[in-house]
Nucleic acid binder design. Structure first.
Lengths: 197, 197
DNA sequence: TTATTTTGTAAGTATACACTTACGTTTTAA
DNA sequence: TTAAAACGTAAGTGTATACTTACAAAATAA
């Protein structure tokens, strides 16, 4: 044999670069030439690491979750006097949209008639959903809030808020103060639930 | 002179067809050839009605609001024992995503670095926002609920829910029952507000 | 009728882009 | 040392696609 295969490692190094490219350009405008240039490679070198452009995109979708989960996990381990759920809410209210990586979801939704892209997006949303459900339940146990709406709906709603603040940030529809208020105020209402009827 | 110019009328007839094409295919894959074919025209005939493909897309964004507002307005004028806001909530919970036209927003967000597309989307969201604020206020006046969060935030949250149910519908993440529950239950919580703290 | 404008049909152009081929250079296990 | 595999560089290929040109047919105000 000869020369160890470093493909896995190189893929791991390059995915963040690809993800950023897809985020900035969208799927179609992220040409293979542009992707290669940002990676500091030639096109065919990229094609030695992934079979085609779509595979590069799918890897970027997975990366989006991993990146976010990594940040949230760090928040969970911080010492603080408010609940982890609230910490995440606060953090997202302040920083949502900053990386621009969320645009990968826009690109993905735009390609969602492709079965593999659909599946990658579904996986991603489900993982976020699970993560958030865990936090909602934990928060409600310690804070003893009303459980309307149930954790599942609440988690979807939180994701919805996240999506919306991404959009308002993207389009400049809300300034960052209003964006934070939206996320935190409505997020808290959802977390703590409504009146028991 | 000779032959009256029917361009305005033809544009009005064709925009729904274009909008559907952009919705089904996304911006990039909606090729001018495909657009022309669905309109039953040749490409250059389309180019006699709009200066370029982007203009066709911008017209489709505007149409998306008009189409939805038209439906909502009809709901407002119905006789019923629940408030108009709740009627819209119920209707959207049941029918959201059915037309597929919402995919135009996915396509638009994916092209949002183009200034004209950005502006068209901003206009669209602001119009929806205004419309919904009106309904929220009207509902709260008659129903006299707690006023957290304020109407502006509530309206953005309702739009967020709409976006989310579009996505879950698109990806098959929720069945239609769960989708309706999400829209109606959380929508109502937002409308009626939480406990006064 | 006739001059003028719209409408229809067909073909073409220039470019961008996903993906490939070819070939030389470097690295490392044996 | 050497064979095999990884890595680097350059150029190419076929196709898709936004937009154009050219020209004939139809319609209508004068």
């Amino acid at each position: 044999m000869a020369r160890p295969n470093l493909s896995n490692q190189r893929r791991a190094e390059l995915v963040p670069v690809l993800a950023r490219a897809f985020a900035e350009l969208g799927y179609r405008r992220a040409t293979t030439a542009a992707l290669a240039e940002r990676c500091g490679l030639r096109e065919n070198q990229l094609y030695r690491l992934w079979p085609n452009k779509k595979a590069m995109f799918l890897a970027s979708i997975d990366y989006l979750y991993e990146y976010t989960a990594e940040i949230w996990s760090r928040l969970l381990n911080e010492e603080d006097d408010i609940s982890p759920a609230e910490r995440i809410l606060n953090w997202e209210g302040e920083h949502r949209g900053e990386t621009g990586l969320h645009r990968i979801t826009f690109a993905g939704l735009n390609e969602a008639d492709d079965p593999e892209v659909r599946e990658a997006l579904k996986r991603m949303y489900r993982k976020f959903h699970r993560f958030i459900i865990g936090q909602v339940k934990a928060h409600r146990e310690t804070a003893g809030s009303a459980d309307h709406p149930d954790a599942t709906l609440t988690a979807w709603s939180v994701i919805a808020l996240g999506m919306m603040t991404n959009i308002t940030h993207e389009l400049g529809l809300l300034n960052s103060k209003a964006q934070g208020k939206l996320f935190q105020e409505v997020g808290r209402l959802l977390l703590e639930g409504g009146d028991d009827k």
